[in-house]
Design a protein around this nucleic acid. Structure first.
Length: 259
DNA sequence: AAGGTAGCCAACCGCGTCTGG
DNA sequence: ACCAGACGCGGTTGGCTACCT
């Protein structure tokens, strides 16, 4: 998995860290704290350079570093922050407690980048479809004016068959901890297009106030609360300001009635 | 079963920024 | 104001693992 340990021409050890080296670094920092990365390896009895020690500590040994799988909420947040900050991984990491810039960067390149790309591709494809269509309905024209991304495009971003779609995609359980609605390609049992239309109308109303925003997404791994794979894409709806949270929750509570 | 390939991630490298003298 | 050393950041690499042919 990692580079085999070796010594460079200056006698500095490189490559994978051993458990013994980890212990030395950890116990030294716990005892004396962080004061000089350059001097630290000598005093800690390590044949590493300061940079290597810093990296190992920051990305792996630091007590508050959270290792392991990313949650759906973390993935969503990274995507949002990436849109906001670009490749400023340290800024993104600052808003994700326990995650390091290096880890987020790796996670982005291996898991999230392709989702972002596929989202762009799908959006572009749908836009072409929309533009080439000479029979756009009045409602479609209306939705297109509400936000940058037309609603019909958002909801068709990753079509699911009725068999694949969850009948409770819009239930309140889909309200994330960040107070966003994850809307998915919707096909309610006994609801169908009527329910979809109701939700579209609701989204139109919310976004037309200027207090809410939406964005489409396509994701291979959408998880419900029990971390079971549930859906494959859709759109995200969130209030801009905390002041609008009450209204947002009120609307969310009414969602089941839309079925 | 064996070889090839892609995915993944820890660690390295180079450069820009910060800080203290 | 300038300089040198330390630090932090983002891009890249190397090698292990899993999957495919």
């Amino acid at each position: 998995m990692v580079r085999a340990p070796y010594f460079d021409k200056d006698g500095v050890k490189k490559g994978a860290w051993s458990a013994e080296e980890d212990d030395k670094l950890r116990s030294y920092i716990q005892k004396y704290g962080l004061w000089n990365w350059r001097e630290l390896p000598k005093l800690a009895g390590l044949q590493r350079c300061g940079k290597s020690c810093r990296l190992r500590w920051m990305n792996y040994l630091k007590p508050d570093v959270k290792l392991g799988r990313y949650t759906k909420e973390e993935d969503d947040l990274i995507i949002k922050l990436h849109e906001k900050y670009g490749r400023k991984w340290s800024k993104i990491a600052a808003e994700l407690p326990g995650r390091t810039d290096n880890e987020i960067k790796n996670h982005w390149h291996t898991h999230l980048k392709k989702h972002s790309r596929s989202q762009e591709t799908e959006s572009h494809g749908d836009l072409i479809t929309q533009n080439s269509s000479s029979s756009s309905s009045e409602s479609e024209a209306k939705t297109s004016s509400i936000c940058d991304v037309p609603f019909h495009m958002i909801l068709e971003s990753s079509p699911l068959s009725p068999e694949e779609a969850s009948p409770c995609d819009f239930s309140p359980t889909n309200i994330s901890s960040s107070d966003s609605l994850i809307g998915t390609n919707y096909s309610a049992e006994g609801g169908g297009d009527h329910s979809l239309g109701s939700i579209l109308e609701m989204c139109q109303e919310l976004t037309s106030t200027g207090d809410f925003w939406t964005e489409p997404f396509v994701a291979d791994n959408m998880y419900d609360e029990s971390h079971q794979l549930s859906v494959e894409g859709g759109f995200l709806l969130s209030p801009y300001y905390d002041d609008d949270l009450d209204l947002f929750h009120q609307v969310m509570n009414e969602l089941p009635n839309l079925h």
